[in-house]
């Protein structure tokens, strides 16, 4: 994100505070003094946040202390997962939730023990929730979920 800071000493430090407080890990920071526009200096930084929520909270807090965020872009880290389900299972119940289905393979769909391979992309922060949901649904349907180690 790019922040616009009043061109006074101590402003950068002040801006970093909400980021640290919300668990942001700063990966790079560029304080471009050549791009001073009037009384403001622009700072571009890349940070890693534990969740979307913590990133948004940081933005709110920055604005709260008078630092405007002139540009921001979220890149959500995703995880590629393969799981196998043995038994009946309703895929509708898991779609949405930031999940992208890459590929589904079915074997023996009409038998008593159908088997499905699910290859999905899940936001990193949602992986645990995704597994919990799978196990919950499987328990209801008496299906067996096999997840990666």
């Amino acid at each position: 994100m790019t922040l616009s800071l009043p061109d006074r000493p101590g402003q950068l430090l002040k801006a970093l505070e909400p980021i640290a407080k919300n668990g942001g890990n700063i990966i790079s920071i560029v304080h471009d003094r050549n791009k001073v526009s009037g009384e403001y200096a622009l700072v571009s930084l890349i940070a890693d946040f534990p969740s979307k929520e913590s990133f948004r909270e940081t933005r709110r807090e920055l604005e709260g202390i008078g630092i405007s965020v002139v540009k921001s872009e979220e890149v959500v880290a995703k995880e590629d997962l393969t799981v196998i389900v043995i038994g009946r299972f309703n895929l509708d119940k898991i779609v949405g939730r930031g999940l992208r289905i890459i590929d589904v393979e079915l074997s023996n769909p009409s038998s008593e023990k159908p088997c499905m391979k699910l290859h999905v992309e899940v936001p990193k922060e949602a992986v645990k929730g995704f597994y919990n949901l799978l196990h919950e649904l499987a328990e209801k349907e008496k299906a067996l979920i096999i997840t990666p180690v």
Binding site: I84, I86, S107, K113, K117, V149
Partner: peptide
């Protein structure tokens, strides 16, 4: 008990073994 031959086969094709 509930691990089927088909599941083992599907896993294998995706580069996994069921253990």
């Amino acid at each position: 008990r509930d691990v089927t031959q088909e599941a083992v086969e599907l896993a294998k094709r995706s580069g996994y073994a069921i253990k």
